[in-house]
């Protein structure tokens, strides 16, 4: 008996109005995220992975709209929810972590002020209660001296610390899903390891599911239970890490795996390259 997935997306499409007509950078994307799962989304630029995550969080820019056959999150139908319900639900159950924390944090406000804002609005906590939670969240993400941090400004922290702050902000409301879009790309590899460690810990302790978007397939293979492969707005493969390591079915996934050098890559051979006509190969796979 399978429980309802935490996030259920069927036939998601994102449409954007441009001067030259309408484009659909995301089309026919369907996937689920179960409670407590860590699901990775891998793709290159133009794959639509960021737009997909924005669509889920109802954060698409003005000229873009999301259409789907089904879009359910935490037992609620996002397509038919009122804006108020939507805001409430997404404000409490969903946390988003972006690549560049400097542009997500308001540089002119202290960290404490930004952190308590969201949780006070959605949970109606008093200021003291909210601050206490904020300090607790900062401690959870292993920032030293949380009370002092609350009084600091974003620019006073390092990149890794800012990223943790973002995560802490998201945690304040105890979300059931954390959507992290390239959270470690701008960070050094050692700091990256710490942030990933943190996300895994949160997943284990709080049971938050994680939708981890990254271009780094090696990283995802170490962290995720399942990986979604996106290419040019479509979901080309949905596989477990075991399947990824064994032999992916789709040629794009295979090429992607072969193209990324890691510490065990064969130095004498050329790196695999992604074939230009993936659509044709796609049809081949479907016919097989």
């Amino acid at each position: 008996m399978s429980a309802e997935p935490l996030l259920d997306v069927q036939e998601l499409e994102v449409r954007i109005r441009t001067g030259a007509g309408e484009v659909r950078p995301v089309a026919g994307v369907s996937f689920t995220v179960g409670r407590g799962e860590i699901v990775g989304v891998v793709g290159e630029s133009g794959s639509g992975k960021t737009l997909t995550s924005l669509a889920v969080g109802a954060l698409l820019p003005r000229n873009a709209t999301a259409h789907a056959a089904r879009l359910r999150f935490a037992g609620c139908d996002l397509l038919s929810a009122s804006p108020r319900t939507l805001r409430r639900l997404l404000g409490t159950e969903l946390a988003m972590v972006f690549q560049d924390p400097m542009s997500s944090l308001n540089p002119s406000r202290r960290i404490g002020a930004q952190m308590v804002e969201a949780v006070r609005e959605h949970r109606g906590l008093s200021r003291e209660e909210a601050r206490r939670r904020a300090a607790g969240a900062l401690a959870d993400v292993r920032l030293t001296d949380p009370a002092a941090r609350l009084r600091q400004y974003p620019h006073e922290l390092s990149g890794g610390m800012r990223q943790r702050t973002m995560i802490a902000m998201g945690l304040m409301s105890e979300p059931s899903l954390i959507v992290a879009d390239e959270p470690t790309t701008a960070l050094d590899v050692t700091v990256q390891a710490q942030v990933v460690e943190l996300l895994c810990e949160l997943n284990e302790r709080h049971g938050s599911a994680v939708l981890f978007i990254s271009h780094n397939i090696a990283l995802l293979s170490e962290v995720c239970d399942r990986i979604l492969v996106m290419y040019r707005g479509r979901l080309v493969e949905d596989l477990t890490v075991a399947e990824l390591l064994a032999r992916p079915r789709h040629p794009y996934t295979r090429a992607l795996v072969g193209a990324v050098p890691d510490l065990r890559t064969d130095r004498t051979r050329e790196l695999a390259t992604v074939p230009d006509d993936v659509d044709r190969l796609d049809r081949e796979v479907a016919d097989a």
Binding site: I38, T190, Q192, A193, S221, E222, V223, V241, V257, D262
Partner: peptide, 22 residues
């Protein structure tokens, strides 16, 4: 700290095992 394909530095459950129950 470098991620390796199929490494298990952060894995808490074996690759391919189902997620914990609801």
């Amino acid at each position: 700290a470098v991620p390796t394909l199929g490494g298990d530095r952060w894995r808490r459950r074996p690759a391919g095992a189902p997620a914990p129950a609801a």
